[in-house]
Nucleic acid binder design. Structure first.
Lengths: 225, 225
DNA sequence: ATTTTCACACTTGTATGGTAGTATGGTAGT
DNA sequence: ACTACCATACTACCATACAAGTGTGAAAAT
């Protein structure tokens, strides 16, 4: 008896959605850019339906704004949304790392340490892209160990706005060495169950991401609300 | 010069969405119920398009599950999702009420006190529905005073799952008197800036909402995942 | 009696035509 | 020169037709 796994064939709708989302996050479609169902459907060589449904999804996530009978536009960056996204992430990650200090599965701890080794390797190779993924994964492992994967999903969802803002800075001012060191110390704190220390480390870690919104807003006024 | 405010005329899509959402949350459409685009469009006397778009939105919010070429079903209640929703709300509300203790606008404090008066009146009249709305509003005012409205939106979004679970209990075991008392004490703590006390009150207040999932799951096994 | 096959009645996914509302640029009237 | 008007070319919204995958039950084969 063979269980036939149904591999979700990426639908046209999802393909269009992912493509648009990617372009918006990379600022290839800058804030304010008008999008048109017709135009986009011609560009992707598909009908208007999947395009339209992609727009609706993007609108729900706040990445585009749909004005009935007027047009659809890439959303301007909302500073409040960015700051609150950071705020929520900080509060939730601080709470979760406290949980991790109280109870954390052995295999998750092993995953963390493996991840740290990979981070070191990627730093050597100056593989920024991979380093970024490992950073995300590190935090994800902590949530997974605390059985809070849905919380992690929510955080990632909220952070698309923050990420778009981050993209405005030239990407390479990431101080990976510093981030790695913080990761390492957080893992140790979890291992030894030092909740207060862990929370403090996480707080500092996440505040590194605070980009000076005011500066960016002045530099790219047309991108901001 | 008159600014012509454009009152978003409720689109067909939104009308269908709101109606379905309401029915799902009230368990008039119990978890597991099959929904059909065709059937629903006939029921609402509209075409498949707005119905389909409503389904997509509901799917994104986790209220329905769409299986391509097979069907669309009202989502089973996910215990993990419910518990994590409660967890996130607790963490965020605790942090925000701390903020409120440090800095809270005068007019927001006035709104809180007006709200408390209205709560008392509603309790007298045993107006449960209004009391529920005032409860929501009370928390909303705190977020508004801290300029964290987006955070509040996220919480409300996450809590649809918790609310569906809550709906399973007979609605009238709400101990409004107790809730009111907690609200009153929280408002006082904000006024006097007692952050630790406020946080503790909020924690207790929200833990009242912890329904014993296991019991409900046993009583309504077909509703749960 | 049991198994296999297959037509058919569903499902959602995609394409397309028509409708109503909106922005714009040219034109006629002042 | 300036304003009011209006044709026109957009827009998103909705309705409908077609395509493609899935499950079911009856009929045929074993």
């Amino acid at each position: 008896m063979k269980i036939t796994l149904r591999p979700q064939p990426v639908s046209t709708r999802d393909a269009v959605y992912l493509q648009l989302r990617d372009q918006i996050l990379k600022l290839e479609l800058p804030p304010g850019t008008p999008l048109s169902e017709n135009e986009t459907s011609l560009l992707f060589q598909v009908s208007r339906t999947p395009v339209r449904e992609s727009f609706l999804r993007l609108a729900q996530e706040g990445l585009v704004q749909v004005l009935p009978q007027r047009g659809t536009f890439v959303s301007l960056i909302d500073t409040e949304l960015v700051e609150e996204g950071r705020f929520m992430r900080e509060q939730l990650e601080k709470s979760v790392i406290r949980l991790a200090c109280e109870q954390f599965p052995e295999e998750a701890l092993a995953s963390l340490e493996l991840n740290l080794l990979q981070q070191e390797a990627s730093m050597m190779k100056q593989d920024d892209k991979h380093m970024f993924e490992l950073d995300e994964a590190f935090h994800g492992i902590i949530f997974e160990g605390c059985r809070k994967m849905n919380t992690w999903s929510v955080i990632q969802q909220m952070n698309v706005h923050l990420n778009r803002s981050r993209m405005l800075r030239l990407a390479d001012d990431h101080n990976w060495q510093n981030l790695f060191e913080q990761h390492r110390r957080m893992a140790e704190a979890i291992k030894s169950g030092e909740a207060d220390l862990a929370e403090q480390l996480m707080k500092e870690h996440l505040s590194l991401n605070i980009t000076d919104q005011a500066v960016l807003k002045e530099k790219y006024p047309s991108y901001y609300k």
